Amino acid sequence: MSASATATATFALAALVGLASFGGVAVLAVAVVLLGVLVAAGWPDLLDLPARRSSTGVVAAVAVAAALVAVFAVRAARAEGSQVAGVLGHLPAVAALALLVAFGHQLLRRDGRPRLVESVTGVVTAQAVVVLGAAWVAVPTTYAGATLAPVVLAALAATSAVAATTWPLRVAGPVNLLVGAAVGWLASSVTALLGGGGTTALVGGSAAVSEGRWAVAGIVAGLGAGVLVSAWRALSVRLPAARTLPAAFAVAAVPVALGGAGAYLVGRLLLL
Rank of each mutant, 00 (worst) to 15 (best):
G57F: 05
T6W: 01
A253P: 00
T125V: 13
A5N: 00
P140R: 07
G24T: 05
P255R: 03
L107V: 11
R78V: 05
A163P: 13
V64I: 14
V151I: 15
A128P: 00
A247C: 06
A93D: 14
V209K: 01
S54T: 07
P50W: 03
L108P: 00
A261H: 06
G218R: 04
A12P: 08
T191Y: 06
A15S: 12
V190N: 06
A26V: 13
S2K: 02
A79I: 03
V152G: 06
A41W: 08
L16W: 00
V123D: 03
L194G: 12
R110K: 12
L13T: 03
A187G: 03
L91Y: 05
V33M: 09
A241K: 10
G57E: 06
A3M: 10
A158H: 05
L235I: 08
L108T: 10
S119V: 10
A161Y: 04
T244M: 04
G57D: 10
M1I: 10
V227I: 13
P246G: 10
V129D: 07
Y143D: 11
T191S: 14
V152W: 12
G42Q: 09
A95H: 05
T166A: 15
A5E: 11
V152D: 06
L34K: 00
W136R: 06
M1W: 11
L202G: 02
T159I: 14
G180P: 00
R233P: 08
A102Y: 04
S189W: 14
A215H: 12
